[in-house]
Design a protein around this nucleic acid. Sequence first.
DNA 1: CATGAATGAGGATTCATTCAT
DNA 2: CATGAATGAATCCTCATTCAT
Lengths: 184, 184, 184, 184
Amino acid sequence: MTLTNRQTEIIDTALKLTAEGGIQELTIKNIATALGITEPAIYRHFRNKSEIIKTMIRKFDEGVVPEKEGMEGIAAFIRSRIRQVTDNPSLARVMFAEEMFLDDPEYSELLLSMMHRHKNVLLRFFQEAQERGEIRRDIPADLLFRLVFGPVRLLIKQWGMSNHAFNLQAHGEELLSTLRKILW
Amino acid sequence: MTLTNRQTEIIDTALKLTAEGGIQELTIKNIATALGITEPAIYRHFRNKSEIIKTMIRKFDEGVVPEKEGMEGIAAFIRSRIRQVTDNPSLARVMFAEEMFLDDPEYSELLLSMMHRHKNVLLRFFQEAQERGEIRRDIPADLLFRLVFGPVRLLIKQWGMSNHAFNLQAHGEELLSTLRKILW
Amino acid sequence: MTLTNRQTEIIDTALKLTAEGGIQELTIKNIATALGITEPAIYRHFRNKSEIIKTMIRKFDEGVVPEKEGMEGIAAFIRSRIRQVTDNPSLARVMFAEEMFLDDPEYSELLLSMMHRHKNVLLRFFQEAQERGEIRRDIPADLLFRLVFGPVRLLIKQWGMSNHAFNLQAHGEELLSTLRKILW
Amino acid sequence: MTLTNRQTEIIDTALKLTAEGGIQELTIKNIATALGITEPAIYRHFRNKSEIIKTMIRKFDEGVVPEKEGMEGIAAFIRSRIRQVTDNPSLARVMFAEEMFLDDPEYSELLLSMMHRHKNVLLRFFQEAQERGEIRRDIPADLLFRLVFGPVRLLIKQWGMSNHAFNLQAHGEELLSTLRKILW
DNA sequence: CATGAATGAGGATTCATTCAT
DNA sequence: CATGAATGAATCCTCATTCAT
């Protein structure tokens, strides 16, 4: 996914608009106005709105899957998510808002496939962590996934909804160490 | 919040439409068509679309706050959420999708105030639970909230996104007992 | 095909616009303005522009196929076409302009199927006429079709392009009797 | 009308596009894409779209008027039309579709003046043919024109609409000899 | 001779809402 | 309690054309 400068600008604007006002605010006109150009100009850079949204969604996914193993992999995944979100704070309000893209099956499928891909990677991490004794063994991987990523999602969401009122990174580390503590 | 029959029908339809296709599918026309009436007829029952959405949002909140204390209160809260959602499965895809209502400050405030109210009640429960020794004391209440309700939210969301592919109540109980175990 | 009053008005306007300025002039806005209403109002009466065009095309076909036989059938067909066109002069510039509707396969198919239906009826008439000795037998039916309907089409087209500068009915009768004479 | 190579390519593409999808498909973008160049490049070769269309229309007229007399002239005219169309099959669907160019008076006038010029030449041929006894004298020239060119037009149109499903030249000769026979 | 980026005008369509009946 | 007909505002998108490079 290599984007031109203008394309990146458009996607970033789209992200910001969606984060601030929901999908309803994501209109071609709003993007164009925010960029100081006219609506038709957008179409030189993306075939249609659908392509913009799909490119935006694909951005949620950028380089999150780490090349580690076990508990290390899990921690790396969480940290990469947090880094991604602090780098581009708009993501915090959009990344886990799958419902916002429900209207077009194309989007929901894209999102769902991303979710599943991540989940599979993480389930493997959990299994490894259990085998290595990094995590207690009496909790099924599925449940572990929920116990770990439920809080991570909620933390990021709270950070977004609070307009970044607290230090996400610090809270992320705190969450991580607490998770380590209670899951073993 | 006493609703006439027709009003209840309208809200339920609104809920279903939003759950299935996102906010974008929630149009007066879609509600009217689903109910087999015409668009102007809707306005006999609600002043405008805004009222419909706000009534819908208020439904997320129905009788969730239990009159218990400590760990009992927390468990009761979670069980009441799960009951609410199994009673009206559409809620699962809508209830925690705050981002969907971002476009109108009126909605986000309503939602946010609900979130805060719940959070305060729950923080009290956590404190009580810690004081009573039902929950370990070395985790700040804020973090506890995330650790408990992150997974609950994710569980309900997964149930909704999977089109109710698993037994939510059973998974809820499993989650609850695991939480008790690890937070001990 | 029963149309409401408004629908008939819309189709008649569409016909007139197309006749006067070609397909390019057939816009929802032009129809609406001609009728003194706004564009969205049109959509109360037709699902979309496509339905308007298809309804318009179907009008070319109204009651043209006579219940006669042989030469009588042919004459009746021609006279009914001429009557149809004098009743609604806009038809003259549209009816045989199949190329105007080339952009949508739905239209061209509709048009083509109409053409074929008519052709089949007429080929039968020609055959009957030849069997009865009303028409000379040394010309294949296909060619007869061209010899008769080529001139009819051209006559109607000339009438339309000349802004109805001559008496179509009289010229039609003249053409008819000449055809009888030369095809003897 | 001397055209550069690129101009000829543009006109041929325009012709093909119009033949295949009607005037609506004749856009600068479609021409450019078909030629593998960008839209602004078109404007190096034609001042504007109007010039393209007018050049295209003028092509309908290329070398059709023969230097013969009487029946010979008529036959030559028909044969030249058929040759023109077999040389460039797209013409078959465009040449006699005057209605397609109705939206701009400039085009319709151009087309009409062409039609009239041809008609005058042909009327002279008919007159000569009648004087020479090549054609029966009891039919007015106007009507003769319709009787001959109605079928010719229809034949060419049928050939175009059928995607050149039959041998146009052979059918043309058959039509010609039949015309000779019945008009004698 | 060609492109990349842009624009003003206009296209079809949808939306929430109103009003007379 | 409901409908039929309408509207203003907004949506996405396409078109011919321009201009700097």
